[in-house]
Design a protein around this nucleic acid. Structure first.
Lengths: 115, 115
DNA sequence: CTTGACCCTTACAGCGCTGTCAGACCTTAC
DNA sequence: GTAAGGTCTGACAGCGCTGTAAGGGTCAAG
């Protein structure tokens, strides 16, 4: 399928699909005319990228994760990597939540003092 | 005092002090030579900006808040504004925390499925 | 053949800061 | 007078996407 259709099916903008490719997350074949040609494999990948992205991961991080997620054959694991990265990401999120909570406390304090 | 000293005393970089001014949060007088000249009033303001900033507020938001915080004379309140903004900010933070929590759940799910 | 809908690449813009560099002046002290 | 250190303005860069626009091919239907 061509990029427009993939975009419609995944809800990812054409712009971003091309961007994914530029960042090395996607490598669709090309028609003779130079049009990107995606298979259902790629569609799957895009959905995964979208999920991981929704989880707050950077494209760069997702890229390191993708080769592991692609063949979820558990035997193929140069991907202890995977666990490490995921755990690290969770840690990162926890930090951010912690920071926000502190901010919340500060502001709530202000707010209370204005009552 | 000159900008360098204020920077040292508040821990805010010279760059950012000038930026605050550019954004209208600060308006130090100038010496004949054109040097910025800050008083203890301004130092106070910078500390407040720093706090609010640490609480995740945008400079623009802080700017709307400052005139209220400056004269904490509670009688002088065109600043019901203040309460409104603070409450709104807290809401914003809560939203972000909620989003992050969802992300965390997603990733933790992945992580568990890899065990 | 022409039109409209897609596709291609390249590149600029914006979010909200923050660092850094360049070119030039001021001030203090030796 | 000179040198060091502080200050001034203005401008470019980068973070990680994301939209948009320009200039130009491709493909299908009429």
């Amino acid at each position: 399928m061509k990029i427009g259709e993939l975009s419609r099916r995944t809800g990812v903008s054409v712009r971003m699909l091309r961007y994914y490719e530029g960042e090395g997350l996607l490598a669709p074949s090309r028609t003779e005319a130079g049009y990107r040609d995606y298979g259902s494999e790629e569609e799957q990948t895009v959905r995964r990228i979208k999920m991981l992205g929704a989880a707050g991961m950077t494209l760069e991080t997702i890229q390191r994760l993708l080769p592991c997620v692609r063949n979820n054959d558990p035997a193929f694991t140069p991907c202890n990597e995977l666990r490490r990265i995921l755990a690290q990401q969770v840690g990162l999120i926890d930090e951010r939540i912690e920071t926000l909570s502190q901010s919340r406390t500060i502001l709530a304090g202000y707010l209370a003092s204005v009552n």
